[in-house]
Structures are given as C-alpha cells and as structure tokens.
Amino acid sequence: MDLTELVPVRTVQSAQATPVLRPFVRAFAQRTATGLFDAQPMPAFLETVIHFEFADRLNVRSPSGGYEQVRPLELVGPHTHGGTSLLFEGTVNSFAIFLQPVAAWSLFRLLPSAVAERHHDAADVLGKPVVSLWHILAENPDFTDRVRAAETFLLSYLESQHSDTTSTTAASLLSLEEGRIGVADLASRMHLSVRQLERGFLREIGVPPKRFARVARFQGALDARVECPDRSWLKIAIDSGYHDQMHLVHDFHSLAGFTPELTLEMLGDSRPSALAVSHHPVTS
C-alpha cells in the first residue's frame, strides 16, 4: 500500500512517574502512529532518554542532513544544539523514559558527558536488564502496563543510588531553576571558582555551565507554552528570565531552528505534555 495515500494517524500518551521516582524521571511517553508524516523537529533538550521501538523504526535527520535509523533499543544523550528532526513512515509503536538531566549518573553511574549529543545502543550502555525490559514492554502494549514495568525496572536501581558529584549537583540546581542562576553565583554556591566550575561541567556534563543554563532556560520557556498555550510569548520571556522577547526568539532560532510559533506548530510530540506538567506556575 502507498503510505502517501494513508491519512496519518498518531496517538501520544504521557505520564509523570510515581512520586519516589520524580527526582530521577521527568516523564514516560508512548507514541503509536501509522502513515507518512512531515519531519518533526527535535529542539535542544537536557534529558537522557531511553527509547524503545517495537514496529517500524524512526529516522533521525542530523543538522548536516545525514540520516540515521533509530535502533529498537536506544539511549539518547542530551542534545544542546538544534537542527535535529524525526521522520515517521509506516507503523510506529514506541515507548520512552525521559530521565532528569543528570539522573543517568544517580541511577546508572553514567555521566552526561559520556552520552551527550549522540544516540547509543542502550543494551551496550545499560546491559541485560534493559534488554529484559524491552521484551516485557513488547509483550504489553498497554501504556499503563508499560509505565508500571518501567518503574519496576528503575526502582531496582534506587537501592544502589550513586551520590551526586559537585558538577551533577550544580547541573541539577541549574535545571531546577531553569537556567536563572548566573555562572558566578552558581560557582559561589558550589564553593568553587568559575574556572573550576567550568572544568567540572566540561568533564562530567559535557558542556559549559553557560550553555547548560541557556538550554535549561529555553526548555523552561518551551514547556511553559506547551503547558499553557494561551500564555503570551512576552509573558513567558519575562518569567523565564530573558532580557526581552527578542532574546527568546533568538534562542528558539538557535536551539529549535524556528520562530517560537513555528516551533510549537511543528513540534508534534517531541515534548510530551507530561514533561511540562506542574513545572510552571500559570499566571495571567
């Protein structure tokens, strides 16, 4: 059958984790789709994502224009640059675990710098337990059942949770504050010089703290609009700590590839709604 003749159909479900896992997991999401879809941009993001595919594979288009097919079991590191996009064709059945920005260290002793800006075979990185989880999820297509299985998998790692380093603690604070802390202030809070903070970020997080903060602020602005579509971009810019709306527009061009409105129009399910729930006070 010619896929171009099919009316594209896509269903997305997302949910927050059980409270004990929320310091480590931002959201779970499931996508089912049939047909041929336009390319969907993937704006810059700080989460590490464990991605499970059970039908036709997605294709990832890099900023350089090259294509890479998504593996059935993939770990996607944080991406702090825009320009990447997803292409859907055929039948899609996928499930994803969106980890908090530095939770891969807390749960799996995996530094963000080790996986940043790249896609990895999750089996190579996380071993047999995640392969077993893939099989469980494949046999249980119900979203609620899959969330329950994923939480059981993750809860088993809490017993051997790893202590944060200075850099992962600082990154968690930047993420929580959505980039609103200056680098000098952050260094002072960590009892470090700015240079020490920058070296630690490059070594363990994979990017300078200023870049991390910029993406955190951008994500906060994007999620604020996803959560409350009626909020004006001017209000979001002010609440997110931008000097003015034009600075927000500049970041969207740089980190998503489009204007704010066009980003939202083309975003699709790249930022499932559960990622934004309760992260932003809705004000008029």
Rank of each mutant, 00 (worst) to 15 (best):
H79I: 09
I97Q: 03
F95N: 07
A123R: 12
L158K: 13
F143H: 03
L99A: 03
P112G: 06
L176M: 09
R180T: 03
A116K: 11
N93S: 13
H162M: 07
W134H: 15
I136V: 15
N93Q: 13
S85W: 00
L133W: 06
F143D: 04
L110F: 08
D164V: 06
T80V: 04
G179H: 00
H162C: 05
F201N: 00
D142P: 02
V102S: 01
V194Q: 05
L176W: 02
G179D: 02
H135L: 13
L176H: 09
R189L: 15
A114D: 09
L107W: 05
R180I: 01
I136N: 14
L202V: 06
R148S: 15
P101E: 08
V125I: 15
D142T: 11
I181E: 01
S172T: 10
E198N: 12
Q100C: 13
A138M: 14
L174K: 01
I136Y: 05
K210D: 12
A116G: 12
T168M: 10
H119D: 07
S188E: 13
P78W: 04
E178F: 15
R199K: 11
L202R: 10
W134K: 13
V115H: 04
S106K: 06
G182Y: 12
H135K: 12
K128D: 14
S193Q: 08
